[in-house]
Amino acid sequence: MSELVAKRGAGVAPKQALFLVFRIGGERYALQAVEVAEVLPRLPLKPIAQAPHWVAGVFAYRGTVVPVIDVGALTFGLAAEARTSTRLVLVHYQPDATLPAQLLGLILEQATDTLRCHPAQFQPYGLDNRQAPYLGPVRKDAQGLLQWVRVADLLDAQVRALLFPSPPLDPSLLEDRA
């Protein structure tokens, strides 16, 4: 009986989360792993005309065309280097909880490590960076600062409308123009 009381009194350990760690230049960033659908090698992409420079293109994935952005180019204007550790990471993009999640590809450098920690270890860094709302709080560890990237905040309304038109384009309407 005393063993049961001791277990109850021990409390519940804080729930840890898994993060995929990547780099942009020399800086470390992390995505929460529950947002990641799949990690792929870097694949050839079809460019999208008149898209922002950080929209890397599209590719076909299991019968669906998936848009891809280069997170380094989005954040600092530096395209990801073609390294063996550069990955195409598919994430569940859902900017609004009332809409279904859609696949979005992210080109990420050195996306080969994971970290398990409590999300509360990430703390606000004191800046209101409205130009990059996807850059969330930071966590200090032995390697320096690690910044959380929030997938839902990656695209502004204009780019979201370009990559994920609502309602989706109807191919039959294109045939009528011919």
Score class of each variant (00 low, 15 high):
L88V: 06
R62P: 04
V66S: 01
R87L: 08
L106I: 00
T84G: 11
L90P: 00
V89Q: 04
E109N: 09
P95M: 12
L90G: 03
P95A: 01
A97D: 13
P67I: 07
G63F: 04
A111H: 03
L74N: 01
L115C: 08
A73D: 05
D113G: 06
Y61T: 07
R62F: 05
A73W: 09
Y93H: 14
L115H: 05
Q110F: 01
L99T: 12
P95T: 09
A82F: 09
T75D: 13
V71L: 15
P100N: 02
I107W: 05
A60M: 14
V89I: 08
Q94G: 02
R83S: 14
G63W: 08
T112D: 11
L106Q: 03
Y93N: 03
A120L: 15
A56Q: 10
L90D: 01
T112S: 08
T114I: 11
T112N: 10
I69F: 07
D113M: 07
I69G: 09
D113R: 08
G77D: 08
A60W: 10
P119R: 08
G77Q: 12
D113I: 02
G105F: 01
Q94F: 02
V65M: 15
Y93M: 06
I107K: 00
L106P: 03
T75A: 15
A79W: 11
Y61E: 12
L90S: 07
P67T: 09
L99Q: 14
A80I: 12
E109Y: 00
T112I: 05
R116F: 04
G57T: 12
D70M: 07
A73P: 00
A101W: 00
H118N: 15
L104S: 06
D113T: 03
G63E: 09
V89H: 02
T64F: 01
L104N: 10
